[in-house]
Design a protein around this nucleic acid. Structure first.
Lengths: 216, 216
DNA sequence: CGAGTGATTGACTTAGATCAATGACCGTGG
DNA sequence: CCACGGTCATTGATCTAAGTCAATCACTCG
């Protein structure tokens, strides 16, 4: 069984979709949108009316620049919340376009803000979730500063570890993990193989385990 | 004169130190701390009592892992706010250690929370700033997914542009910029040189300018 | 006027990307 | 029940762009 491990949210690198509390409180006023591949959810300059959650699929946030080319600001994946800044902005400052067929839940900005005002605890929740995301993203960025694949992977593993301090449960595919680390899957496989050969980790289908070490 | 350009906060890649409003409101209850190189500001497990701003210097946020080695979660630089998550956590989950002699301003958590409760607008401000940081960080991460130095630099330039859509003012040194882009300064210089040779940009001491292009 | 730092360019090396092939596994439909 | 197509995992061979080492020049600051 996967996807069952209880991982402290702070520890995890990315989505941290603990907007369950959000859903619970605001679900009823949210709406669902289905998008064809290539279809736009909103455009740069549109009135910012909602914050979104990707239920399924993948959306690209794209900025159109004056100097011709378009720039991808972010790719939002399954489970992620995006366009949070819409809460405080008047208009969207980029396009959101489905990269593949996607399903998106929209949380109306006014409702959210109203809910936050009415129930400050809810607002604090949201604030906390943002703060955690900031931390996680900064950590991921720090990780990307590590050039060596081996060190990068180790950096990740040491942080992705569960409470025992040694086990990293594997939830998705290794390919996805490779992408998250900013490595090609080939290099990632090789690196894991090398680490295993050097006795630094052991690897099973469901987890990677750091071996205890005496010396640094 | 540098450091004078007015850049919409959303656009910028990283610090976005628009906590001026914060300072204004809470400055008086904040305290200043001076740190020697190597000196710790707080330790993993300490009661989380404050959020900090680097006024000068550079701090490393370090997590101690069970599997011996320490991991750098983040390096906070001049102007950056850090340990925001302390607001919602009971204890710090990493050490903060001065990388060089540094000066740090501490904003007591209780004061901040109290202020947010008393003046919801202030809280919303803070929330907005967090949301913007999340966006900026995600964008920077997207940028790091671009392997080619040339494309990465272009990606950066197109987003760092001021309102005219073509001018990127140079505030710090090119070396710093290179680091921010995750490139060695040599490669960065070469890339800029190549882009200039190809007529895609022009470069002066104080700015880089994207040349208009007809075709993609 | 020297020391220190940033900017710049050349030469060389290498780690990671890329291309390719193979086997394991899994669901599905006949 | 099995053959087939698809995805993931894995490994080999090769290539190249980015990293590394190194040298030079311009500039600023005491």
């Amino acid at each position: 069984m996967r996807g069952f491990s209880v991982i402290p949210t702070q520890e995890m690198p990315i989505p941290v979709t603990s907007l369950d509390w959000l859903s619970a409180a605001i679900r009823q006023s949210s709406t669902l949108h289905k998008l064809e591949p290539g279809e736009a959810l909103f455009h740069q300059g549109d009135k910012a009316s909602a914050v979104f959650e990707v239920e399924q699929g993948r959306l690209r946030l794209i900025r159109h620049t004056l100097s011709s080319r378009d720039v991808v600001l972010h790719t939002a994946r399954s489970g992620e919340l995006f366009a949070e800044a819409a809460l405080f902005a008047d208009r969207y400052h980029c396009d959101a376009v489905a990269a593949v067929a996607s399903r998106v839940r929209a949380y109306p900005k006014r409702k959210l803000l109203a809910a936050f005002r009415k129930d400050p605890a809810l607002g604090e929740h949201f604030m906390a979730s943002l703060a955690n995301q900031v931390q996680a993203l900064r950590t991921q960025l720090e990780q990307r500063n590590i050039r060596s694949a081996r060190e990068r992977v180790l950096h990740y593993l040491m942080l992705a570890v569960v409470e025992d301090g040694f086990t990293v449960p594997l939830d998705g595919t290794l390919m996805d993990l490779a992408a998250e680390l900013g490595l090609t899957h080939e290099v990632f496989y090789r690196t894991l193989a090398a680490l295993e050969k050097d006795g630094i980790i052991t690897k099973s289908r469901s987890a990677i385990t750091l071996r205890k070490r005496r010396l640094v």
